[in-house]
Design a protein around this nucleic acid. Sequence first.
DNA 1: CCTGACTGAATGATCGTTCAGTCAGTCAGG
DNA 2: CCTGACTGACTGAACGATCATTCAGTCAGG
Lengths: 222, 222
Amino acid sequence: MANTIIPEIKSQVTDEVLVQRRRQQIVDAAVELFSSQGYYRTTVQEVARKAGVSTGLIYQYVQDKEDILLLSILDIIDSYQQEIPAALAGVEDPLLRMRAALAAYCRVVDQRRLATLLTYRSARSLSSDRRQLIKAAELDSNRLIADCIRACIDAGLFEPVDVDFITYQLVMFAHTWALKHWRLAEQYSLNDYVEKGFRLYLHACLTEAGWRHFRLMFPSAA
Amino acid sequence: MANTIIPEIKSQVTDEVLVQRRRQQIVDAAVELFSSQGYYRTTVQEVARKAGVSTGLIYQYVQDKEDILLLSILDIIDSYQQEIPAALAGVEDPLLRMRAALAAYCRVVDQRRLATLLTYRSARSLSSDRRQLIKAAELDSNRLIADCIRACIDAGLFEPVDVDFITYQLVMFAHTWALKHWRLAEQYSLNDYVEKGFRLYLHACLTEAGWRHFRLMFPSAA
DNA sequence: CCTGACTGAATGATCGTTCAGTCAGTCAGG
DNA sequence: CCTGACTGACTGAACGATCATTCAGTCAGG
């Protein structure tokens, strides 16, 4: 975790390295349990057992059960922040970057499908100020997509669209893969889904020059 | 409620009319409480108090607390089924119908924003077979949108797009207004949001003839 | 020995669910 | 009409289970 947002969660334990390690251990167990059973159906004792520690130990690293949820959700959002930049590394062309970002986002959502759902299901169980932290982290990770769109506009490939609007639509496009997986996966493979989405948003954004560029980059397409 | 899906929820009470009335009373209270506090944070006693009945009475009309949740979610989905056809009544032109359907969907989501969130937050708290009922109801209400898209294709206004795919994107576009309201409402009015969404999806679908028709129907647009 | 991480049984609060009992209405028999 | 038996909707206090949280005590290493 290389969180930009460090939540102020107090721990009884002073050794910072140990705190990191133990919390990760707890969060790994929690994400798995919360994702599959839900937050309220999971007991702290279960988390402890799965993490291989005692119940009491958990309360040396967090204040209460909600803290475990907060850390879990931040951990999930953080995995977007890790994976997307990695997928963009070395890709120069703005249109290809745009595609790579969307594909990476969808891939992470696919790999951590239940975890992604958890953020929707349980974020509102948090107190208002803890929820603010989640929102800030989300906006932060959206920036990765927004930058790709802006680069396309600056290169003259996209019309001067509303970047925030398109960003949110793209983010939700990826999340939809998790939210409606029960239906979508009946009809599309992940790759088909990404491809169709990419095309859809291109139609809304590409300039004339953008279309020419597109046909150059993807000669197979119509 | 004119549910197409009648869930098999047993009631101790035999008088069918009374069952309808009491259940509605319970569901109205439950939707309000579940929406604002969440399912697990709401006690059956609270639902009873808000509905103006005793705790015991509730258990004469449902089997357990989950039944209340199931009825609540079905009630919410049902409100889409009521409102969208009403908004389409009398509108003939396929493109206008399409727009009216999207606007109506978004309007219902806006009016019942917390209730819409409830369906995302809590659907997974239901047992698998109760969840199937929700999914069926959702597919049913999606049909209203799909029909509008098909009409546009048949009229030659839309390319022969993947109807299911676009339908899901439109449905999610509406739901996104609830899911990301904390951010979107900072930037757009509901009308702006609908308008921008409508344009976006038109770009992905319209034929040449469709564009001519569009400019005819909306002369103000660029 | 201390210190501080760690344990896990015990505590206390919170709820879903039940059930013994109330009460209004119905109806048969006188 | 009255009356008393009966029905079934309705009540809400009590029960029992479930958990979040605590804390008295253990143990390892310095």
